[in-house]
Design a protein around this nucleic acid. Structure first.
Lengths: 237, 237
DNA sequence: ACAATAGTGTCTCTGAGACAATATGCG
DNA sequence: CGCATATTGTCTCAGAGACACTATTGT
């Protein structure tokens, strides 16, 4: 049989295949708290529980898995987040009551302000403080997935400035440092923090300042590829 | 409708779902060369081309994705590799001629000696020098997947001793350093290399020595969790 | 002037890079 | 002994940690 004959008669439905979905952990930082976006499930199974934004791939519309993840996020937040990264794929026979199930998980970051309005209008979506998660029962294994995502984000805080994507486009160095401190769970020497960012030339000084109380702080924005940069030496875990 | 009613009438075949497979890049190190395991495809599509060991998840037998990947590797090599790690999941509408396709990729390492015999007896499996890959046309996007796996392994060589799993159970420090040098593509100061491994207490001195020519070298084996250790400071990329 | 926060100066300390010096086996 | 390879000593240098000091705003 030739390959084209084979493709002609190929019927995918002959084979048993797992359920396949895409889920995202979307984090943001607002009022000194790290938050994750949850949505209330409107269908079985685990109807009524809160879980990660996600769903099935639409074979007609989505060209890639990442596009599928971004589409789901845009539906909930009204915008496409500036940072998305594949986290991990979880697949086993027991995570979904319907049977063997696979989910490709993404981690995404966004500024709180750019989607706060949109989310407030959507009844079934909400930002939840990461600190409050522990007490919640989430759908499927989503609790676990969030913990994996958090661990990865914490590691990244030690050797990159990826967390900056959870801030507004323009932000101050104290802003960013505070976010890293929340992630790492301990204070960072401001000199160390500033030195490495300056030395690696990761940010652009916009020339603007922001003041709340005390000396005004310079506003920076990220350079194009700054999220990909990794420091050769980590901050202390 | 209750959840149990829903589960009762649920029929997975109603929904269009992508093809789903599991593929692994299995690396080893032998005679100063990094090698990857390839298998010749015995079915359409891409029949006759060489590609990564992998296939479909068997819903009846595999409990997890990782088990599925390990099962495929054991079929080809006769043994279960000591290191496996999820690499990345690739899914899009175009990578497989049959349609929307998703593959969960793993990276795995093994000592050459423990599976060399088994592989020589299997006609459709072979170790290929990574350096020779470029000239080959591989099935699907497997060429690309191997490059992603290599890049990740190279990064790990800078901040971990994960590559040690590609060596025999007992190995010398010059062995390991050489492997890291092949991965990184440049020489490493032996003092630096030894210092960091000793300081992190990652290996056990077996007391045995191995001699080829010159002073005999001490044989070490890895401690249990040494693969998880990451140095706070990278070697120079 | 003082409070509050931003940003700098500078010392210490760890660990990588460089490379010379020893050590231990073989013939 | 001389060769080959393993292992150690030790100097330099970059960059993180610590912490005191200066700068810039508002009240």
């Amino acid at each position: 049989m030739t390959e084209s004959d084979y493709l002609q008669q190929y019927d995918q439905k002959e084979f048993d295949t797992p359920l396949l979905s895409v889920d995202s952990t979307l984090f943001t930082y607002h009022e000194n708290k790290l938050k994750v976006l949850l949505v209330e499930r409107s269908a079985h199974p685990d109807l009524g529980l809160w879980g990660l934004p996600g769903g099935f791939v639409e074979l007609q519309h989505d060209q890639t898995l990442e596009q599928a993840a971004l589409r789901k996020l845009e539906e909930k937040t009204g915008v496409i987040p500036p940072y998305i990264e594949q986290l991990q794929t979880i697949g086993n026979a027991t995570r979904d009551k319907r049977g063997w199930s696979v989910t490709i998980c993404y981690t995404s970051l966004i500024a709180h302000q750019v989607c706060a309005v949109s989310i407030e209008t959507v009844k079934d979506a909400a930002w939840v403080n990461v600190a409050d998660l522990e007490a919640m029962k989430l759908a499927f294994d989503h609790q676990e997935i969030i913990q994996i995502a958090l661990q990865r984000l914490r590691e990244k805080a030690l050797y990159s400035i990826v967390p900056a994507y959870a801030l507004a486009e323009k932000f101050t160095l104290p802003d960013l440092q505070q976010l890293h401190e929340v992630l790492i769970g301990k204070p960072i020497q401001k000199k160390s923090f500033r030195r490495r960012i300056e030395q690696a030339d990761l940010l652009i000084d916009t020339g603007e300042k922001r003041q709340e109380s005390g000396r005004p702080a310079a506003l920076y924005r990220m350079k194009e590829q700054s999220g990909k940069y990794t420091f050769v030496r980590n901050l202390e875990g």
